[in-house]
Structures are given as C-alpha cells and as structure tokens.
Amino acid sequence: MESAMGPELNDEELYEHHKFIASKGQEPLRVDKFLMNFIENATRNKIQQAAKDGHIWVNEKIVKQNYKVKAGDEVKVLFEHPPYELLLTPENIPLDIVYEDDVLLVVNKPAGMVVHPGHGNYTGTLINALLYHSKDLPVNSNDRPGLVHRIDKDTSGLLVVAKTEAAMTHLAKQFFDKTSEREYVALVWGNVEDESGTIEGNIARNPKNRLQMQVFPEGEQGKEAVTHYGVLERLGYVTLVSCKLETGRTHQIRVHMKYIGHTLFNDERYGGDKVLKGTTFTKYKQFVDNAFKILPRQALHAKTLGFVHPVSGEMMRFDSEIPEDMSLCIDKWKDYAKHSM
C-alpha cells in the first residue's frame, strides 16, 4: 500500500482518502456501488475514474470497479481534488448577516449552501463567502476558518462565526460545555404523541451506509446525543415541532426524530421523501408530491441561537424567520388538515 500510493502523495495536488471496513452483514456488492453508499457527492463517473487510475484498493490490493465487496473487506479509495489553497478562495457571495462586531458575526444560511468545502463542493460554500467578507478569520482544529459549529447543506438557519482566535476558543467552549442555546423548527411525518419529550441515544455512522448516521441506544458506539422536543402544531399526518439541542452531533435532529418514528418531511437521506403517513388515495399522493416540490429538502430550520458574547459577557439571543419554502409547505399542510381531517 505504501509503495502504491507513494508517488501520488508526493505530487503537489491534494487527494482525498477514504477507508471503510465492510460490516459483518455486508452482502456481496460491486465496489463502485459500495462506495456510492459511503461517500457523499461521489458520482459513479468519479468512482469509475478512480478505478481506472488504480486508486481503489481492497485488502491492500488494487481492484477493478466490478470487484464484489464482502463482509470484513477493507476498502480504500483515493480521489484527486483541487489544491488546498483553491478550496479556500474568497468568493463574492451575498451573505445574510444578522449581527456583526469586531470579534464575531451571526449569519442566516440559506438551504442549499454547503458550510465548508469538501468532496464535490469545492466552491460556493459559506466559508468561501466568509473569506471574502472577512479577510483574516481564525482557523479551527479542522482547518476551517471561523467555524464554531455547522449545519447541514439543506438545513437553513443561524450560525455564529468567530473573527478572532480568542472568540473562537470562547465560543467553542460554550458549545462543548452545552451552554449555548439552539432551537430548530422541523416538520415531521406522523402525529407526535407526547406534547414534549427528550430523545437520548448515542449517534454514530451507520455501518452499512456511511452517508447516514444511526442511533445506538445502548451507548456501545458513537457519541452522546440529547434532543428536547415540543409539539408546536398538529397538522394531521405531519407535526410541526420545536427541537432544542443539548449536543450537536451530525444529523442529530434528523436521526433522533426518525428513531422515535417521526422522520423529517422530505428528508431524502432518511426516507422522508416518501409518503410515510396518510391515505392511499391518489389525490392525497398528489398533494404530498406537490408539497415535496414546494419544499425540495428536509423540513428543518435553525431558528434561534443563543450564546454569551466572548468579550462583553452579555447573553446574545437571535431569532430568524422560517424561510419561504418551508413556510409555504407548512401552510399547505395547515390548509389540508383544516379541510380533510
């Protein structure tokens, strides 16, 4: 393996490396299809090109794209991507800045914008926009300028960004100590039975699909995750809920709500883009399809954000409007519930 990858690693260009161990329950599956399940935004063409270049290994041996991955196989793939400095190019992208001072800013991120550059998303990210807006952002432990926390590409809402090293340290500690306040609004499938509740369960990567996270209730894997939820409005086959995060794990609300049987509306990755509750009537299916078109993403918005200002010590709280696509979808369900339930 060392000799096989050595020449590429000496090139000036950067490469992305991914390594996976096929789970015990893995049925034989072509390596290109296996990798499609494990690498976000990796196209079939990109994986096939990696195979042609001899950049896919299984158990330390180069394989072709039709190799069948089996339980226990160690799969490695190497992708070429632009040099690091190009990934952090300032771009003149408009930002919805809610608040700004000398040490931090709060931005309202639109759905569809990736927070930081990565595989398949090398430009047009929030980081590219922030670097244009503020020239000397501090870098966090993952080499990501200004970032203290993040939200998913298709989730909209509030993010705080640090403009100095001291502010980054101070804010990061608040998130680590669980003293920051974060409230999300979500539209979920089904009628949530309890008016409020707390979901607890460790979260880690799904061993069979690395693009998904999974709850491990016994705590045998993953990191502790706690979500508090409350019902805002019942709309028949869907429910509008408020979710307050005690921890901030990848996909936390999406995974926790699915875990209790209430997948987010139109959350494609977790199966919410199908009719999960309701009737079999054709008219109803058409209604849901129209709702999907109005809101072509998971129904999740980071509505409020609270933290202690790193310099003044003042408690800062920010609130944002639910974006139009999500608001229109909620109104559509309200109207349906009023006339059909």
Rank of each mutant, 00 (worst) to 15 (best):
S3F: 13
P7G: 08
E8W: 15
L9F: 15
N10D: 14
G25P: 02
G25K: 15
G25C: 10
V31F: 05
N37G: 14
F38S: 13
R44S: 01
I47Q: 00
H55C: 11
W57F: 11
N66T: 12
P82Y: 13
P83N: 11
L86K: 15
D101T: 06
N108S: 11
V115F: 08
G120T: 05
T125P: 08
T125K: 12
D136C: 11
S141F: 11
S141H: 15
V148K: 08
V148F: 06
H149S: 04
V161Q: 00
A162Q: 08
F175Q: 07
F176Q: 15
E181F: 13
W189C: 04
E193M: 12
G197R: 06
I199P: 02
G201F: 06
N206C: 06
P207N: 11
L211S: 00
Q212Y: 05
M213V: 03
P217I: 05
E220C: 01
Q221L: 14
Y229T: 02
Y229H: 05
V231G: 00
L235Y: 04
T239A: 06
E246Q: 15
R254P: 07
V255H: 05
H256Y: 00
I260D: 06
K274H: 15
K274C: 10
F281P: 00
T282N: 14
K285E: 12
F287W: 05
V288R: 11
F292N: 09
F292T: 04
P296F: 09
A299Q: 05
L305P: 04
H309E: 05
F318H: 06
D319I: 10
D319G: 08
S320D: 04
E324Q: 13
S327H: 11
H339N: 15
